[in-house]
């Protein structure tokens, strides 16, 4: 178990019609590792992340989580049952939060655990309180999402994902839709997860955050991983011309 990679992506390729968005991507993430994916718009970062939990299934290649192949080819019913099962282990946080507006914060957090893990009402409530305390929003438990700020919404979305006790968390530009003054509160929650050794794959445009939190950085462009390495190398001493060009634009701000 120790030397086996936790998340493995092998020869991943993905096309939308004639447009090839991912080209032969390989990636391994160890348990507890935090990987940042950076790259220009349209380079395929979201598509790669969404392939990990089968939201956008790969055209070819394999995705593995802890020895289980995520993108198995199965008859429809079995496939559905299989993805529903593995997705419980893969938390995802979206740029636009995607909280359920018709449910309270409590309802947002407890819906899936109650339905899928058969928690009783008391257990689910306790779980919601725990997760909310973790993101510092215990007092918002009975609010509707429309009453929360963007930063609070994203923290609730993180709590909702964590309530499923996932093995890995995927973040797709979790702070891009936020007003600048609300970014830090979400970053803090993510840093705290890092300290707890949550395995995370983070697509981000925030180079400072990636540099301070991540163990490894992948630079993607036009559907390929151009360069990867520890943040010290990627940000301070990138080997590839394309990486340098990209960083020149994004670090100078």
């Amino acid at each position: 178990m120790t030397d086996q990679a936790f998340v493995t992506i092998k020869n991943a390729a993905k096309s939308f019609g004639a447009l090839q968005v991912l080209k032969d991507i390989n990636l391994t993430v160890e348990r507890g590792q935090i990987v940042a994916i950076i790259g220009p718009s349209g380079s395929g970062k979201s598509t790669l992340l969404r392939a990990i939990n089968e939201l956008d299934p790969l055209t070819s290649g394999e995705v593995w989580l802890e020895g289980v192949q995520v993108n198995k080819t199965l008859p429809h019913r079995q496939y559905e049952a299989h993805v529903n099962q593995v997705r419980q282990d893969i938390g995802m946080v979206f740029q636009h939060f995607n909280l359920f507006p018709h449910l309270t914060v409590r309802g947002n957090i407890t819906l899936a655990p109650r339905m899928l893990k058969g928690l009783s009402e008391d257990e689910a409530n306790k779980l919601a309180e725990e997760q909310l305390a973790k993101v510092g929003l215990a007092e918002k438990i009975d609010e509707y999402p429309s009453r929360l700020s963007g930063g609070q919404k994203q923290r609730v979305a993180i709590a909702r994902a964590l309530a499923m006790k996932p093995k890995v968390m995927l973040f797709d530009e979790a702070t891009s839709a936020l007003d600048p003054e609300l970014v830090e509160e979400v970053n803090l929650v993510m840093k705290q997860l890092a300290e707890e050794h949550m395995t995370m794959i983070i697509v981000t445009h925030e180079m400072d955050f990636a540099a301070s939190v991540c163990d490894r950085v992948l630079f993607m462009d036009q559907g390929v991983v151009v360069e990867e390495g520890p943040p010290s190398v990627i940000f301070e001493n990138p080997q590839e011309e394309r990486t340098r060009n990209f960083l020149r634009k994004h670090l100078s701000r």
Partner: peptide, 27 residues
């Protein structure tokens, strides 16, 4: 209903039917 609603529910592991009943239809 915003596609993100379905994605969020499916990502949590809810089936198509569960997502329809608990997330999409109420909205």
């Amino acid at each position: 209903v915003d596609k993100g609603q379905t994605e969020a529910a499916r990502t949590l592991g809810m089936s198509k039917g569960e997502t329809m009943r608990k997330v999409v239809l109420p909205q």
